[in-house]
Amino acid sequence: MLDSGKLLLAVKDLRTYFFTEEGIAKAVDGVDFEVYEGETLGIVGESACGKSVTAFSIMKLLDYPGKTVGGEVIFKGENLLEKSEEEMRRIRGKEIAMIFQEPMTALNPILTVGFQISEALMAHFKMSKEEARDRSIELLKKVGIPLPEQRVNEYPYQLSGGMRQRVMIAMALSCDPSLLIADEPTTALDVTIQAQILDLMRSLLQGFKGALIMITHDLGVIAEIADRIAVMYAGKVVEYTDKRTIFYYPLHPYTFGLLTSIPRLDLELPRLNAIPGVVPDPLHFPAGCKFNPRCRFVTERCKEEEPSLVKVEEGHSVRCWNVERVSKEAKEGLLVGEV
């Protein structure tokens, strides 16, 4: 049902390491997912699990000392990892655009918002300054900024956080990209503004023919917007399936843990469960399954041997040795809510 669109992006076994002085930090170490035209993929996980690095690896915008050391990023049939910097420049902004987490720091403080939106238009479509400016005003109007003719000449410091994020969205949509990557677009905003921005994104998606990758740590956001979900932990995709399956039939202990750690109106959980421990330091990952020190279902095998991402049924892959046990408990714990 979901696979109706054409395959737009396929990330295969992506590995991005940071070569620091203390050692090699494997920030992304085996990420696989696909994005089809017209669908929204949610990438969910705790802070520092490699979500953003995955996005930057796709865009080839990694900062030193980060380097993609393996895997493939097939976009419209071509491997982006083999593209030159100049070829990538023509793809960025035009084919793949990005919305960043911090609207406060992601806009250049000394350039007007109008210029910052115009720039992509001038770079990719060779528009004149005036044309690009007119188009910028239209875009500002589209993302719901009042008085766009006036705002277009203002500097980021004159706008509120929510406004700046709207500007970021206008900027990302300016060239009508086929793929939009939103990296925690609502995290830095307060709750009411978060809701407004999500509403805006949803309404813009209605007329948007391309695909969206939504990166977030917020399962609520994912539930609202995503079609398919990749759960990441310690640089790896641990579970990958559609939204309904994730929320009601999770097979990975981490996904299950996340779901029972948030309050849900459709379930009567006796109490919220916290996942014990913290995300491991990417310089000192545990042996075996990276989740084993925090896992309720841990066995001896988990500590020695790392599971690989296995397709358990059509459209559902998971990286765990104890799928049956998790499945059984999850059914008891979560299925009550499904109507």
Partner: peptide, 24 residues
């Protein structure tokens, strides 16, 4: 971050360095 934003827009490296970065 805004330097990364500029690169993500597909602005050429010369503009990134001499306009976005140097001016700041």
């Amino acid at each position: 971050d805004y330097i990364r934003t500029a690169r993500a827009k597909g602005v050429d490296e010369h503009t990134v360095i001499h306009l976005h970065a140097r001016k700041n």
